[in-house]
Design a protein around this nucleic acid. Structure first.
Lengths: 231, 231
DNA sequence: AATTACGACAACTTTTTTATTGATTTAGTT
DNA sequence: AACTAAATCAATAAAAAAGTTGTCGTAATT
């Protein structure tokens, strides 16, 4: 025999994500009522920099790439968005536009939660808002790291940073490098595609990494970290 | 000497579009204050089927493709969105989600107007709302045509319909066919890509059309219209 | 003034995507 | 049961995109 909730597919999804575990039944109801679930296909935009944001996105599964757009084909990649991540949080609390774009690099199952509901729950539930604050904090640290990378490091350090970052996602997503082009990697490092190609080859020659088609295996993590630190 | 408005790029844009000419100064102000302008690059989604819609889009320049998504890689193309067209109108007046996706097939300069502002102006200004209603009416007719195409016509009729429709855009956009793949054309016709390829070849053999790489030139419009009517 | 760090361009190769064609299968119609 | 319409599959061809490499120019650093 099934309860009402067990038959409700959406509800089960809510429950599954750890970050929603801390909500009361009423709060989950609130979220449920003002949410929808969408399949973004590989290549679809989850957000477009500058558009009005009336909701936040919560990634159930799949991966996306979050980036800031500059002039023609000049983007800078901020991060890979993973299951359990929110996208567009800041639109809830302050500016009512998305300040970055993001695009699915695999098919992505995503919740959209209207921001009013989100704001209400945050105000009600301190534990939940603590979690959100923690996420902000993490994002801030990443943004500072990105800034440092761009401001103070040169190519070697930037690519080392980038490789270490992406490699850190490999445990959960072994195929992560296959999903990224050299251009993507270059845009994480903030350098030209050609430079990225050359540097990767040179890192390979020095035995720091191994290039197997699109996959990249880190051979000498310590040295890479050294290069990253040196800048 | 310049007036304030002449220096205000956005304002000039508002003014330019014929459909906003019928607004009073105050109404334009209202729209202005709650709008933003975004460059969607070729390939970017303007809308994603199912996401919350808090604004409507108004195309300033560029072309987009509007489609409904089905199961994996099975979409149906509804129309080509042109400069002067609105996207997402229905989200203002009823359902608060986009009921179709759209993607830029060239770079697109687009206004986003928050729906509250839009609704207010529509209520205030009968001439403007008449224009909007006319647009709805046009869209409805197109939807009926699409339905008829799918329900009652077979391949030949569907492709003929599609060719006539796209060719109708050619005066304003001579490069329109170059922007569409065979898959796109097939998805307008609601048939498989392979069938579309074969039919186009067969139409060419019969002298109905001329295939110059991606461009398609209609040679015998009357006959195509006949085929379209026959279904 | 020399060196370094890198981006930009051009030429080229490889990979991926799109287009094409024929053969086969399925379902509906006559 | 035969016929038709059209999708699906598989193989191939062609076009486009991504990756690679060398050369050169420029701006900052030493």
């Amino acid at each position: 025999m099934k309860t009402i909730h067990e038959t409700d597919n959406d509800f089960i999804c809510d429950i599954q994500a750890p970050c929603f575990q801390m909500l009361s039944h009423d709060e989950i109801e609130l979220i449920r009522e003002s949410k929808t679930q969408i399949l973004f296909r590989k290549g679809d935009n989850l957000t477009k920099q500058g558009t009005f944001a009336s909701y936040i996105l919560f990634i159930i599964n799949g991966l996306a790439k979050q980036y800031i757009e500059g002039e023609v084909n000049k983007s800078f990649n901020l991060r890979i968005v993973k299951p359990g991540d929110f996208v567009g949080l800041s639109s809830v609390f302050s500016k009512n536009v998305f300040n970055y774009s993001s695009v699915a690099i695999t098919d992505c199952q995503v919740f959209l939660i209207e921001k009013e509901a989100m704001a209400k729950v945050v105000k009600q539930n301190g534990i939940f808002s603590f979690d959100i604050i923690k996420r902000y904090c993490g994002q801030n640290i990443n943004l500072f790291d990105s800034l440092r990378k761009i401001l103070y490091k040169q190519m070697n350090g930037r690519i080392a940073d980038t490789l270490l970052y992406i490699d850190g996602l490999k445990t959960e997503n072994p195929e992560i490098f296959q999903l990224l082009s050299r251009k993507d990697i270059a845009e994480f490092a903030g350098i030209s595609t050609e430079s990225a190609v050359k540097l990767l080859k040179s890192f390979e020659k020095d035995g720091l990494i191994q290039l197997n088609d699109k996959d990249i295996v880190i051979e000498k993590r310590e040295e890479l970290m050294e290069i990253s630190k040196r800048g």
